[in-house]
Design a protein around this nucleic acid. Sequence first.
RNA 1: GCCGGCGUAGCUCAGGGGUAGAGCAACUGAUUCGUAAUCAGUAGGUCCACAGUUCGAUUCUGUGCGCCGGCACCA
Length: 645
Amino acid sequence: MPAITLPDGSVRQFDAPVTGTDVAAAIGPGLARAALAMKLDGREVDLSTLIERDASIVFITRRDPEALELIRHDAAHVLAEAVQALYPGTQVTIGPSIENGFYYDFARNEPFTPEDFPAIEAKMREIVGRGEKFVREEVDRDEAITFFQDKGEKYKAQLIQDLPGTETISLYKQGEWLDLCRGPHMRSTADVGTAFKLMKVAGAYWRGDHRNAMLSRIYGTAWRDQKELDAYLHQLEEAERRDHRKIGKEMDLFHIQEEAVGSIFWHPKGWKLYRTVEAYMRRRLDANGYQEVKTPQLVDRSLWEKSGHWDNYRQNMFITQVQDEDKFLALKPMNCPCHIQIFRQGMRSYRELPLRMAEFGSCHRYEPSGALHGIMRVRAFTQDDAHIFCTEEQIAPETARFITLLSQIYADFGFPDFRIKFSDRPEARIGSDDLWDHAEQALREACAIAGVAYELNPGEGAFYGPKLEFVLRDAIGRDWQCGTLQVDPNLPERLDAEYVGEDGARHRPMMLHRAILGSFERFLGILIEQYAGRFPLWLAPVQAVVATIVSDADDYAREVAAAFARAGLAVETDLSNQKINAKVREHSLAHVPVLAVVGRKEAESRTVALRRLGSQAQEVVSLDEAVARLASEATPPDLKPGNMA
RNA sequence: GCCGGCGUAGCUCAGGGGUAGAGCAACUGAUUCGUAAUCAGUAGGUCCACAGUUCGAUUCUGUGCGCCGGCACCA
């Protein structure tokens, strides 16, 4: 007879097997109404699950974080039913809950369009309104396969076929409609509520494999209530406003045009921003024991053959041939082979290790057209690349040192939070298990030393070694890998890098590929979105505009601008024949952080009226004080007094 | 690369089988004004490219290119 333990530690005895529904009802009518599902001994299950033995229960109500996932998963089922009701002959495949919502992949000859959404949403509301109970049914595997095959649902039949033989096959019914599903579900379709919205249609490969058929995916978002849904939609709108492509245009930072797809035309202001970031990075690297180098763009095929890129990466490389010559040169897609060439010059000693070789390396990769995205994913980019040549014992301390540097740099750019993914050995790999054990252990150790947490990304390491990936999130919620650190024993081997050890013998160094920004292009895109174009003063490409109220102040305005410029500030003047209101508006829209307004009063008293972006307030200060204050604020974080690296 | 959508002035967009329109920006003139748009005027277009249908295509059809959203890719 089951004894049920509740989260508060209390125990309830039942003299016959009970369901979660029974237990909730026994506790009280409020809970009976609110409970959507439960955790039975830690496992999420339907409320209707029969409990025959002693167990602990935690009920899941709409308030709980787990509820969102249930709502979204159930919404996917409701979407599938609605689509099959409206478009007979459509096959269902899978429909999971995802961050912020859900999707369902359908197989249908006609693709869906957003014009179909109102009808589908109406049908979904109807299904939710009916409040059909979700009923779980466990079935025999072969019967289930036959059942779905007879229905013409060949994808579902295949799914079951490929499930491991030990897996229980369960179906969930909602009224007449049913779907293969592991569960759990809430009580009925009514629990989905009405705070959902279909968002977009997309193509997606069956089972995520590009060799398979392309299915029609419908994305939706679903929330606990209308308020949450509205907030989410509002957040999306806000994110769109921050899109770096839009702001890049508004602030005149860069453009891309058809004749150079995937490459960026940096405009003066954009390039100023780029140079600010580059100069900062260079100072940080210099202060951290890196040696900067510069290596060739065009490198003969033979080096790529030795490095293995010619065999494994050629389809992504831009290859050139000079007229009348039989030689193939390739634009480098990465810098590592070139860095090894520098390492190989002369004889290296163990005393030189760890040797940290950095390059702002211009790389070209022929990325698939569909991968291109503004300045975040391009074909011509500049990595803040470095390779650390070291011994096996130095992997952990060097990695820890790297993480510390990276954290400092991300913090300076306004990203105190980032995610670390630890990718360990993949199926297809080279190198002994012993070597992998060592390398993985070293990375784990480094994370421990640096005091950072990571998530495991199993099997996602490079074929030659494990890696850490450092991920930042853009305004629209997309994740971008920026930093990386990869352990590579392979390339030094292939390209024959060696050093003389303490023992007088020759040894292979380890190589750590590492980047912090990833590429300047991607990182600047993320920076633009992070600040929505309202950069902190040290990053802003135009730091101040001196604007006049009357033309009598023109001379003084020029004087103010000259004083600002002498203090190293990027300053412009606006002597145009416009009202101050118009000037304020114009430069605010251009995201200029400081507006220094001068009229007759300021010219006479040798002051300026400072107005900061995003504030209505103005502060009148003396010219000298304005210069001192702004110059100090515009100092890059690594050059601030007391903050030197 | 694949699926879908889109491509009209510098920008944001409207329109539509009879060779195009708005607002902002630009330019000219007037205005000298105290913190988010002063007024008036002028100029600006191979309606992405090519082919087809048509008396006639920017509009319809096809192909290509590019962009956007996904998917796949991302040493």
